[in-house]
Nucleic acid binder design. Structure first.
Length: 479
DNA sequence: TTTTGAGTTGTTCGA
DNA sequence: GTCGAACAACTCAAA
């Protein structure tokens, strides 16, 4: 069992397939468990630290991954998970040979790199004894399988979500049998592993509890007390109103199918919140689907004409570079934007509403291309998911799936006053403004002592840059 | 094939 | 302070 973004034991079809294969029967064949179940073999749980993914992950996700792997190993019984470093196309066949495996089981990866990697690994395995078996995906509905009447993918969210609901998904998979034999706990020779990478220095960045058990704890806390008010509170960054499940989902510590099944069981009084969260899960699936069909859009504009817009290039312009850095450090002079950018560095996560506002600010107030912002997010976010991140950015930049009116430019001040009405979010992350009461934290320029603690002045004038952004959009519209 | 309705998340202006 | 209209006209999905 080669684990990747599925670091859990519950609701895990690929793991069940591995267990069945070890027990000498095939799920596809509908075989039945015989007496003496488990005598047939054992399962080697493997994780490969792939430099191609480890290097760009950044400290936040490296730390999350290491902790999640430790947690998985403990759940397997301790000192069981085989960790290897290197390129999977070399490492996986080597481990399969050493283990005498008849098959290598994975959850299918839908991302551009993962699909190429898995094809290479499957090809490398085809020389040996072991079959490469993909079972399930990290999504309720496999990317690429929701299509319209003509067999084409959907390009806007709402029709996709209706078709996604119609398609439906299976019930959560049964738990892995408790009698599963893990190589290392069984009598057979264990497969040599290597140590986990050291956890990176997080420099004060705080992560919540990591791993499958923590994921379920958070999820059930949300079901017990968060989901009821989710529809109203989810847009408020100053309260704990979101599910905060994104990083758990990213690492597959819980499967969305499990969450959807739990949501469906809620009483009708929780309907609004349950529908709203289901819709958010659908967004995750929609963006994975878009990236599945258009893998190049991880870097390229989904709407290519937007690439023609005049942008400020940080590689060529000192002003652009200084503005990008001010944005990265949370020193733009706009409190709501700066709070968001500092939250990113403080906890490796940013509230969704604030992600939109800071992204809009970079692209439309500072005129910097979305890829710069997307890269910074991917460096620090604990939930950094390629599909959701890149297409969230494209959506804001106006080059994404939504034919969003080009004139929609977020106002960082009014967004702050609307969604952080008491200023608590700003004061939490921007200590220079902690002395400003209530919503006045959003407008230090109107307070006599607004700049008493060295908070930076606004680096651009939003009203002027809004007009400038609209003018630049008009240029590409008119050719 | 043609036509029609609709599209996550907004802002500003004037009544 | 609240409300509706305008923004400018595009793409997609479905009837």
């Amino acid at each position: 069992m080669w684990f990747r973004r599925d670091l859990r034991l519950a609701d895990h079809p690929a793991l069940l397939a591995a267990v069945d294969a070890a027990n000498g029967r095939s799920r596809e064949g509908g075989g039945r468990a015989g007496p003496g179940n488990g005598a047939g073999g054992d399962v080697v749980p493997l994780f490969v630290v792939d430099p191609a993914l480890w290097e760009p992950a950044g400290p936040t996700r490296r730390a999350w991954l290491v902790r999640s792997l430790r947690s998985l190993d403990a759940a397997l019984g301790g000192d069981v998970l085989v960790v290897r470093h290197g390129s999977p196309e070399d490492v996986v066949p080597e481990v399969a040979r050493a283990a005498g495996a008849s098959s290598v089981h994975v959850t299918a990866d839908a991302g551009p790199y993962g699909r190429r990697r898995d094809d290479r690994v499957a090809a490398a395995l085809s020389d040996g004894e072991a079959r490469f078996v993909r079972t399930g995906t990290p999504y309720a509905v496999g990317p690429g399988s929701v299509v319209n009447g003509s067999g084409e993918p959907y390009k806007v969210f709402t029709p996709f979500s209706r078709a996604w609901l119609r398609t439906g998904w299976p019930a959560p998979a049964a738990p892995a049998p408790s009698a599963t034999l893990w190589r290392g706990t069984s009598g057979r020779r264990r497969v040599d592993g290597e140590p986990l990478p050291p956890e990176p220095d997080l420099d004060g960045l705080r992560l919540p509890d990591v791993g499958e058990e923590a994921a379920h704890r958070r999820w059930h806390a949300f079901l017990d007390s968060g989901v009821a008010g989710y529809a109203e509170r989810r847009d408020r960054p100053d309260v704990d109103g979101t599910s905060a499940m994104s990083a758990h989902l990213k690492y597959g510590e819980i499967h969305p199918r499990t969450m959807l099944a739990d949501l469906a069981r809620l009483p009708s009084s929780a309907r609004a919140g349950s529908d709203a969260l289901r819709s958010e899960l659908c967004w995750r699936e929609f963006y994975a689907d878009v990236l599945w069909h258009r893998p190049e859009t991880a870097r390229a504009y989904l709407r290519p004409e937007l690439a023609r817009m005049r942008y400020a290039d940080p590689a060529r312009s000192t002003t652009a570079r200084e503005r990008l850095e001010a944005w990265q450090r949370g020193r733009t002079g706009y409190p709501f934007v700066d709070a968001g950018m500092r939250q990113l560095r403080a906890v490796g996560w940013v509230h969704n509403r604030v992600r939109m506002v800071v992204a809009s600010f970079l692209v439309k107030d500072l005129h910097v291309e979305w890829q710069h912002g997307a890269r910074w997010f991917m460096r620090w976010l604990r939930d950094g998911d390629l599909a959701s991140n890149q297409h969230g950015w494209q959506w804001v930049a106006g080059s994404g799936t939504d034919a969003a009116p080009y004139f929609r430019v977020f106002n960082p001040v009014s967004q702050g006053e609307k969604f952080d009405p008491d200023g608590g979010y700003v004061r939490t992350y921007v200590p220079e403004l902690a002395h400003l009461p209530g919503r006045t934290a959003h407008t230090p320029w109107d307070a006599p002592d607004g700049y008493a603690h060295d908070y930076p002045r606004r680096i651009v004038d939003h009203a002027a840059e809004r007009v400038e952004a609209l003018a630049r959009y008009a240029e590409i519209r008119n050719g």
